[in-house]
């Protein structure tokens, strides 16, 4: 658990960050809370000769809520999310999910930006952001660009962000309706055996719209359009629940690990999604 030698940078502005990234290419990585990258470096599974700490970059720790939606800076921590009453009022699912991430110590350091940018399929925020149809803003040598969360994840640790780009913020359209983040884990601090993020809008007794994403059940988060569609127009009765679960199961591709074999994970994914939908519907 001793990392190889590395150069540590703590620039004051984004231009300096981009300059270091440009100079060192693949040999440089940015770090927000460091709770994924540093353990990998200590295990010598990540070789990072040039480590750029983003903590001193201004303007990346803000949570802005206005008519256009919610904008969360990449350095906002899980603890910040849990403590922000206005954010909780605007998007309560964020707090419900953040409370299920790791433990308080990690949540004081772990950031939204790091959680979504790292591309670890075990992280909870990517699936959540897909459910909320968030957009990630990245900045690189050619300026800023925006990438929808639902198009960001390509494979485990592979994302649409280029190596010379930095994820700076997450923008979320104001969520409406009922919500639920349901997660089964073995213990505190664990990644999900299965987790589901659900937002449902109810109108006249039936489902007007729905959004469903699953976590740690494939090598990327899984936004399931089919599962969402299965609920729309229904009264979210047993048949609709069955259809949504069946559609979701067709979209996930879990692998066996110490949490259990594939059959177990699929079964639990169905149970968790069903519970999430029922809870979200009860709040819609």
């Amino acid at each position: 658990m001793i990392p190889a030698a590395f150069e540590y940078y703590r620039p004051k502005d984004m231009a300096s960050v981009l300059a270091i990234l440009e100079e060192h290419g693949d040999d440089a990585r940015v770090m927000a809370g460091g709770h994924s990258l540093i353990p990998m470096m200590k295990l010598r599974m990540a070789d990072v000769p040039h480590l750029i700490d983003l903590q001193d970059i201004g303007g990346m720790s803000d949570i802005v809520i206005d008519a256009d939606g919610i904008r969360i800076g990449a350095l906002v921590t899980q603890a910040d999310i849990i403590d922000d009453a206005k954010l909780t009022a605007a998007a309560p699912i964020l707090r419900e999910a953040a409370l299920q991430i790791a433990d308080p110590q990690v949540r004081y350091m772990g950031t939204v930006g790091g959680n979504v940018a790292n591309g670890d399929p075990g992280n909870d925020m990517p699936g959540l952001m897909q459910c909320l149809d968030a957009v990630f803003t990245v900045v690189g040598p050619d300026g800023e660009r925006e990438i929808p969360a639902r198009e960001f994840y390509e494979a485990a640790y592979m994302t649409a962000r280029e190596d010379d780009e930095v994820l700076t913020s997450v923008s979320i359209p104001p969520p409406t309706g009922g919500y639920a983040y349901e997660k089964q884990k073995r213990k505190i601090g664990d990644y999900a055996t299965a987790a589901a993020a659900v937002q449902i809008v109810k109108g006249g007794g039936s489902c007007v719209s729905a959004s469903i994403a699953m976590t740690n059940l494939s090598d990327t988060p899984v936004y399931s359009q089919a599962a969402s569609d299965a609920l729309v127009g229904t009264a979210v009765d047993d048949a609709a629940l069955d259809a949504a679960v069946a559609a979701m199961l067709a979209d996930i591709d879990p692998s066996e690990d110490n949490r259990g074999p594939i059959a177990f994970k699929k079964h639990v994914a169905g149970v968790i999604l069903r519970r999430a939908i029922v809870r979200a519907w009860s709040r819609a």
Binding site: Q184, R186, T193, R259, G260, P261, F264, H267, V268
Partner: peptide
Amino acid sequence: HDHWRIWKTANDLGLH
């Protein structure tokens, strides 16, 4: 008796 082994017991007994 972790989650999956308990689940397996239930599954083997036909409780699902």
